[in-house]
Nucleic acid binder design. Structure first.
Lengths: 152, 152
DNA sequence: ATAATCCCTAGTTAATAACTAGGGATTATT
DNA sequence: AATAATCCCTAGTTATTAACTAGGGATTAT
Protein backbone atom coordinates (compact mmCIF):
# COMPACT_ATOMS: atom_id res chain seq x y z
CA UNK A 1 0.00 0.00 0.00
CA UNK A 2 2.33 2.67 -1.24
CA UNK A 3 1.79 6.15 -2.53
CA UNK A 4 3.41 6.75 -5.90
CA UNK A 5 5.85 9.53 -6.65
CA UNK A 6 3.05 11.33 -8.40
CA UNK A 7 1.33 12.05 -5.14
CA UNK A 8 4.54 12.58 -3.26
CA UNK A 9 6.20 14.90 -5.74
CA UNK A 10 2.93 16.66 -6.46
CA UNK A 11 2.62 17.49 -2.79
CA UNK A 12 6.28 18.51 -2.60
CA UNK A 13 5.81 20.89 -5.51
CA UNK A 14 2.65 22.41 -4.13
CA UNK A 15 4.22 22.75 -0.72
CA UNK A 16 7.19 24.50 -2.29
CA UNK A 17 4.90 26.91 -4.07
CA UNK A 18 3.08 27.50 -0.81
CA UNK A 19 6.29 28.21 1.08
CA UNK A 20 7.19 30.82 -1.53
CA UNK A 21 3.68 32.02 -2.13
CA UNK A 22 3.50 35.56 -3.44
CA UNK A 23 3.03 37.65 -6.53
CA UNK A 24 5.88 36.45 -8.66
CA UNK A 25 5.62 33.11 -10.40
CA UNK A 26 8.18 30.48 -9.50
CA UNK A 27 9.93 28.66 -12.31
CA UNK A 28 9.63 24.92 -12.16
CA UNK A 29 13.36 24.61 -12.47
CA UNK A 30 13.72 26.19 -9.05
CA UNK A 31 11.06 23.97 -7.52
CA UNK A 32 12.66 20.89 -9.02
CA UNK A 33 16.07 21.84 -7.67
CA UNK A 34 14.80 22.68 -4.22
CA UNK A 35 12.84 19.47 -4.01
CA UNK A 36 15.49 17.32 -5.66
CA UNK A 37 13.23 16.07 -8.42
CA UNK A 38 13.77 15.75 -12.15
CA UNK A 39 12.49 18.89 -13.82
CA UNK A 40 11.17 17.09 -16.87
CA UNK A 41 9.26 14.68 -14.72
CA UNK A 42 7.89 17.39 -12.50
CA UNK A 43 6.68 19.18 -15.60
CA UNK A 44 4.43 16.26 -16.35
CA UNK A 45 3.14 16.16 -12.83
CA UNK A 46 2.43 19.86 -12.52
CA UNK A 47 0.58 19.72 -15.82
CA UNK A 48 -1.97 17.57 -14.04
CA UNK A 49 -2.30 20.10 -11.26
CA UNK A 50 -2.61 22.91 -13.75
CA UNK A 51 -5.34 21.13 -15.69
CA UNK A 52 -7.14 20.60 -12.41
CA UNK A 53 -7.00 24.34 -11.78
CA UNK A 54 -4.81 24.12 -8.73
CA UNK A 55 -1.93 26.15 -10.09
CA UNK A 56 -1.70 28.91 -12.67
CA UNK A 57 1.16 29.18 -15.08
CA UNK A 58 2.90 32.18 -16.60
CA UNK A 59 4.72 31.46 -19.81
CA UNK A 60 7.85 33.00 -21.17
CA UNK A 61 10.92 34.36 -19.45
CA UNK A 62 10.38 35.25 -15.80
CA UNK A 63 7.42 32.92 -15.95
CA UNK A 64 6.61 30.07 -13.67
CA UNK A 65 3.83 28.76 -11.48
CA UNK A 66 1.69 30.15 -8.71
CA UNK A 67 -0.91 28.50 -6.56
CA UNK A 68 -4.37 29.20 -7.90
CA UNK A 69 -5.69 29.59 -4.37
CA UNK A 70 -4.28 30.59 -1.02
CA UNK A 71 -2.40 27.91 0.89
CA UNK A 72 -5.17 27.92 3.50
CA UNK A 73 -7.63 26.92 0.83
CA UNK A 74 -5.75 23.94 -0.58
CA UNK A 75 -5.78 20.66 1.29
CA UNK A 76 -3.43 17.75 0.89
CA UNK A 77 -6.48 15.70 0.01
CA UNK A 78 -7.19 17.95 -2.96
CA UNK A 79 -3.68 17.39 -4.25
CA UNK A 80 -3.60 13.66 -3.70
CA UNK A 81 -6.98 13.16 -5.33
CA UNK A 82 -5.78 14.99 -8.41
CA UNK A 83 -2.42 13.28 -8.58
CA UNK A 84 -3.43 9.75 -7.71
CA UNK A 85 -6.83 9.81 -9.32
CA UNK A 86 -8.52 8.93 -6.05
CA UNK A 87 -7.91 8.25 -2.41
CA UNK A 88 -8.70 4.61 -1.89
CA UNK A 89 -6.76 1.61 -0.68
CA UNK A 90 -8.80 -0.46 -3.15
CA UNK A 91 -10.81 0.29 -6.26
CA UNK A 92 -13.98 -0.96 -4.65
CA UNK A 93 -13.93 1.90 -2.15
CA UNK A 94 -13.30 4.78 -4.49
CA UNK A 95 -15.18 7.87 -3.45
CA UNK A 96 -18.39 8.51 -5.34
CA UNK A 97 -18.45 5.30 -7.30
CA UNK A 98 -21.01 2.53 -7.19
CA UNK A 99 -19.73 -1.00 -6.71
CA UNK A 100 -21.33 -4.29 -7.47
CA UNK A 101 -20.66 -6.52 -4.55
CA UNK A 102 -22.26 -9.94 -4.49
CA UNK A 103 -20.57 -11.95 -1.78
CA UNK A 104 -21.32 -10.78 1.69
CA UNK A 105 -17.84 -11.84 2.77
CA UNK A 106 -16.47 -9.48 0.22
CA UNK A 107 -18.56 -6.73 1.63
CA UNK A 108 -17.26 -7.30 5.11
CA UNK A 109 -13.71 -6.82 3.91
CA UNK A 110 -14.93 -3.85 1.98
CA UNK A 111 -16.31 -2.30 5.14
CA UNK A 112 -12.85 -2.50 6.63
CA UNK A 113 -11.36 -0.77 3.59
CA UNK A 114 -14.08 1.82 3.70
CA UNK A 115 -13.16 2.68 7.25
CA UNK A 116 -9.52 2.82 6.27
CA UNK A 117 -10.29 5.12 3.38
CA UNK A 118 -12.34 7.41 5.58
CA UNK A 119 -9.61 7.64 8.15
CA UNK A 120 -7.12 8.56 5.43
CA UNK A 121 -9.32 11.19 3.85
CA UNK A 122 -10.03 12.58 7.28
CA UNK A 123 -6.35 13.30 7.80
CA UNK A 124 -5.71 14.55 4.29
CA UNK A 125 -8.78 16.77 4.09
CA UNK A 126 -8.00 18.51 7.36
CA UNK A 127 -4.44 19.36 6.44
CA UNK A 128 -3.88 22.45 4.29
CA UNK A 129 -0.71 23.71 2.70
CA UNK A 130 -0.86 26.56 5.18
CA UNK A 131 -0.78 24.04 8.01
CA UNK A 132 2.31 22.51 6.49
CA UNK A 133 3.97 25.90 6.14
CA UNK A 134 3.26 26.65 9.76
CA UNK A 135 4.72 23.33 10.72
CA UNK A 136 7.79 23.99 8.60
CA UNK A 137 8.25 27.33 10.32
CA UNK A 138 8.05 25.58 13.66
CA UNK A 139 10.58 22.99 12.66
CA UNK A 140 12.97 25.61 11.37
CA UNK A 141 12.87 27.60 14.58
CA UNK A 142 13.25 24.54 16.71
CA UNK A 143 16.20 23.47 14.62
CA UNK A 144 17.92 26.83 14.98
CA UNK A 145 17.30 26.87 18.69
CA UNK A 146 18.65 23.46 19.52
CA UNK A 147 21.33 23.09 16.89
CA UNK A 148 24.80 22.82 18.33
CA UNK A 149 27.13 21.64 15.60
CA UNK A 150 26.36 20.88 12.00
CA UNK A 151 28.45 20.30 8.94
CA UNK A 152 28.97 23.57 7.03
CA UNK B 1 -2.04 4.11 -3.00
CA UNK B 2 -3.42 0.67 -3.50
CA UNK B 3 -3.32 -2.47 -1.48
CA UNK B 4 -2.00 -5.47 -3.39
CA UNK B 5 -3.82 -8.75 -3.78
CA UNK B 6 -1.46 -10.19 -1.20
CA UNK B 7 -3.08 -8.19 1.54
CA UNK B 8 -6.55 -8.51 0.10
CA UNK B 9 -6.48 -12.23 -0.53
CA UNK B 10 -4.61 -12.86 2.68
CA UNK B 11 -7.38 -11.18 4.60
CA UNK B 12 -10.02 -13.01 2.59
CA UNK B 13 -8.42 -16.33 3.41
CA UNK B 14 -8.06 -15.56 7.09
CA UNK B 15 -11.60 -14.30 7.24
CA UNK B 16 -12.82 -17.48 5.58
CA UNK B 17 -10.95 -19.56 8.15
CA UNK B 18 -12.45 -17.41 10.89
CA UNK B 19 -15.98 -17.86 9.56
CA UNK B 20 -15.49 -21.62 9.61
CA UNK B 21 -13.37 -21.70 12.71
CA UNK B 22 -13.50 -25.00 14.55
CA UNK B 23 -11.63 -28.23 15.15
CA UNK B 24 -11.37 -29.57 11.65
CA UNK B 25 -8.83 -28.10 9.28
CA UNK B 26 -10.11 -26.50 6.13
CA UNK B 27 -8.48 -27.45 2.85
CA UNK B 28 -7.16 -24.52 0.88
CA UNK B 29 -9.07 -25.73 -2.15
CA UNK B 30 -12.30 -24.94 -0.36
CA UNK B 31 -11.12 -21.53 0.76
CA UNK B 32 -9.94 -20.70 -2.76
CA UNK B 33 -13.26 -21.72 -4.24
CA UNK B 34 -15.31 -19.83 -1.69
CA UNK B 35 -13.22 -16.72 -2.10
CA UNK B 36 -12.85 -17.03 -5.88
CA UNK B 37 -9.09 -17.03 -5.84
CA UNK B 38 -6.56 -19.20 -7.64
CA UNK B 39 -5.63 -22.08 -5.36
CA UNK B 40 -2.00 -22.15 -6.43
CA UNK B 41 -1.64 -18.47 -5.79
CA UNK B 42 -3.37 -18.67 -2.44
CA UNK B 43 -0.97 -21.43 -1.48
CA UNK B 44 1.89 -19.01 -1.82
CA UNK B 45 0.11 -16.40 0.19
CA UNK B 46 -0.94 -18.65 3.03
CA UNK B 47 2.62 -19.94 3.24
CA UNK B 48 3.55 -16.45 4.41
CA UNK B 49 0.85 -16.53 7.05
CA UNK B 50 1.93 -19.96 8.17
CA UNK B 51 5.57 -18.94 8.50
CA UNK B 52 4.42 -15.97 10.55
CA UNK B 53 2.62 -18.36 12.87
CA UNK B 54 -0.85 -17.10 12.09
CA UNK B 55 -2.24 -20.36 10.76
CA UNK B 56 -1.40 -23.98 11.41
CA UNK B 57 -1.43 -26.57 8.71
CA UNK B 58 -2.34 -30.25 8.73
CA UNK B 59 -0.84 -32.26 5.93
CA UNK B 60 -2.23 -35.24 4.14
CA UNK B 61 -5.76 -36.23 3.26
CA UNK B 62 -8.41 -34.49 5.36
CA UNK B 63 -5.76 -31.91 6.06
CA UNK B 64 -6.00 -28.18 5.70
CA UNK B 65 -5.52 -25.00 7.66
CA UNK B 66 -6.74 -23.64 10.95
CA UNK B 67 -6.21 -20.28 12.57
CA UNK B 68 -3.40 -20.44 15.11
CA UNK B 69 -5.36 -18.17 17.44
CA UNK B 70 -8.97 -17.37 18.08
CA UNK B 71 -10.60 -14.88 15.69
CA UNK B 72 -10.86 -12.42 18.59
CA UNK B 73 -7.11 -12.46 18.93
CA UNK B 74 -6.21 -11.77 15.32
CA UNK B 75 -6.46 -8.24 13.99
CA UNK B 76 -6.58 -7.15 10.39
CA UNK B 77 -3.45 -5.17 11.14
CA UNK B 78 -1.59 -8.36 12.02
CA UNK B 79 -2.55 -9.88 8.71
CA UNK B 80 -1.75 -6.85 6.59
CA UNK B 81 1.61 -6.35 8.25
CA UNK B 82 2.55 -9.92 7.48
CA UNK B 83 1.25 -9.89 3.93
CA UNK B 84 2.38 -6.46 2.83
CA UNK B 85 5.56 -6.34 4.88
CA UNK B 86 4.46 -3.18 6.63
CA UNK B 87 1.66 -0.71 6.95
CA UNK B 88 2.95 2.53 5.53
CA UNK B 89 1.90 4.81 2.70
CA UNK B 90 5.61 5.50 2.16
CA UNK B 91 8.84 3.79 3.10
CA UNK B 92 9.96 6.73 5.19
CA UNK B 93 7.15 6.11 7.68
CA UNK B 94 7.54 2.38 8.18
CA UNK B 95 6.86 1.36 11.73
CA UNK B 96 9.90 0.84 13.87
CA UNK B 97 12.47 2.04 11.38
CA UNK B 98 14.82 4.99 11.61
CA UNK B 99 14.88 7.41 8.72
CA UNK B 100 17.46 9.90 7.69
CA UNK B 101 15.68 13.05 6.78
CA UNK B 102 17.74 16.10 5.89
CA UNK B 103 15.39 18.61 4.32
CA UNK B 104 12.92 20.12 6.69
CA UNK B 105 10.40 20.37 3.88
CA UNK B 106 10.66 16.67 3.47
CA UNK B 107 9.97 16.21 7.12
CA UNK B 108 6.83 18.28 6.93
CA UNK B 109 5.46 16.02 4.23
CA UNK B 110 6.61 13.12 6.30
CA UNK B 111 4.58 14.34 9.23
CA UNK B 112 1.51 14.20 7.06
CA UNK B 113 2.27 10.65 6.03
CA UNK B 114 2.95 9.72 9.62
CA UNK B 115 -0.48 10.90 10.60
CA UNK B 116 -1.96 8.99 7.68
CA UNK B 117 -0.14 5.86 8.70
CA UNK B 118 -1.30 6.17 12.27
CA UNK B 119 -4.88 6.63 11.23
CA UNK B 120 -4.67 3.52 9.07
CA UNK B 121 -3.08 1.37 11.75
CA UNK B 122 -5.64 2.64 14.20
CA UNK B 123 -8.45 1.19 12.09
CA UNK B 124 -6.66 -2.03 11.24
CA UNK B 125 -5.43 -2.75 14.75
CA UNK B 126 -8.85 -2.32 16.27
CA UNK B 127 -10.59 -4.67 13.87
CA UNK B 128 -10.39 -8.37 14.61
CA UNK B 129 -11.50 -11.30 12.54
CA UNK B 130 -14.20 -11.86 15.14
CA UNK B 131 -15.47 -8.33 14.48
CA UNK B 132 -15.67 -9.17 10.80
CA UNK B 133 -17.55 -12.38 11.50
CA UNK B 134 -20.05 -10.51 13.64
CA UNK B 135 -20.48 -7.98 10.88
CA UNK B 136 -20.97 -10.75 8.35
CA UNK B 137 -23.63 -12.29 10.54
CA UNK B 138 -25.36 -8.95 10.74
CA UNK B 139 -25.26 -8.48 7.00
CA UNK B 140 -26.64 -11.93 6.41
CA UNK B 141 -29.61 -11.38 8.72
CA UNK B 142 -30.31 -7.98 7.31
CA UNK B 143 -30.23 -9.42 3.83
CA UNK B 144 -32.67 -12.18 4.73
CA UNK B 145 -34.96 -9.74 6.45
CA UNK B 146 -35.23 -7.16 3.72
CA UNK B 147 -34.84 -9.31 0.68
CA UNK B 148 -37.94 -9.39 -1.49
CA UNK B 149 -36.95 -10.91 -4.78
CA UNK B 150 -33.63 -12.29 -5.85
CA UNK B 151 -32.44 -14.45 -8.66
CA UNK B 152 -32.51 -18.13 -7.61
C1' DA C 1 17.16 38.65 -31.07
C1' DT C 2 17.87 35.94 -27.26
C1' DA C 3 17.15 33.34 -23.46
C1' DA C 4 14.07 31.69 -20.23
C1' DT C 5 10.32 29.69 -19.53
C1' DC C 6 5.99 26.80 -20.23
C1' DC C 7 3.91 23.01 -23.03
C1' DC C 8 3.42 18.46 -25.21
C1' DT C 9 4.20 13.76 -26.62
C1' DA C 10 6.62 9.74 -27.51
C1' DG C 11 9.79 6.62 -26.08
C1' DT C 12 12.52 3.68 -22.45
C1' DT C 13 13.71 0.92 -18.54
C1' DA C 14 13.21 -1.62 -14.60
C1' DA C 15 10.49 -3.39 -11.29
C1' DT C 16 6.63 -5.62 -9.72
C1' DA C 17 2.21 -7.89 -9.35
C1' DA C 18 -0.21 -11.61 -10.14
C1' DC C 19 -0.27 -15.35 -11.26
C1' DT C 20 0.72 -20.52 -13.73
C1' DA C 21 2.89 -24.90 -13.66
C1' DG C 22 4.48 -28.82 -11.93
C1' DG C 23 6.52 -31.96 -9.00
C1' DG C 24 7.66 -33.79 -4.21
C1' DA C 25 6.23 -35.04 0.74
C1' DT C 26 2.78 -36.53 3.96
C1' DT C 27 -1.17 -38.92 5.70
C1' DA C 28 -6.25 -40.59 6.16
C1' DT C 29 -8.96 -43.83 4.03
C1' DT C 30 -9.91 -48.00 1.54
C1' DA D 1 -0.49 -51.60 0.49
C1' DA D 2 -2.50 -48.53 -2.74
C1' DT D 3 -4.80 -44.41 -3.53
C1' DA D 4 -6.21 -39.94 -3.26
C1' DA D 5 -6.20 -35.79 -0.91
C1' DT D 6 -3.81 -32.69 0.86
C1' DC D 7 0.25 -29.54 2.09
C1' DC D 8 4.81 -27.78 0.45
C1' DC D 9 8.23 -25.64 -2.60
C1' DT D 10 10.37 -23.33 -6.45
C1' DA D 11 10.93 -21.72 -10.92
C1' DG D 12 9.01 -19.63 -14.68
C1' DT D 13 5.73 -16.21 -17.26
C1' DT D 14 3.10 -12.26 -18.54
C1' DA D 15 1.31 -7.87 -18.38
C1' DT D 16 1.20 -3.71 -16.28
C1' DT D 17 2.96 0.18 -14.33
C1' DA D 18 6.02 3.54 -12.33
C1' DA D 19 9.28 6.59 -13.06
C1' DC D 20 11.41 8.64 -15.61
C1' DT D 21 14.36 10.59 -20.20
C1' DA D 22 14.45 13.10 -24.40
C1' DG D 23 13.54 16.45 -27.39
C1' DG D 24 11.20 19.82 -29.81
C1' DG D 25 7.61 23.64 -30.24
C1' DA D 26 5.22 27.98 -28.35
C1' DT D 27 5.42 32.16 -25.68
C1' DT D 28 7.25 36.28 -23.67
C1' DA D 29 10.42 39.48 -20.78
C1' DT D 30 14.66 41.65 -21.49
Amino acid sequence: MKLSTKGRYGLKAMFDLALHYGDIPIPLKVVAERQCVSENYLEQLIAVLRKAGMVNSVRGAQGGYVLAKKPEQITVGDIIRVMEGSIAPLDCVKEGEAVDCIQFEHCVSRNVWLRVRDSITDVLDTTTLADMCREAEGLKNKEQGTRKTLEP
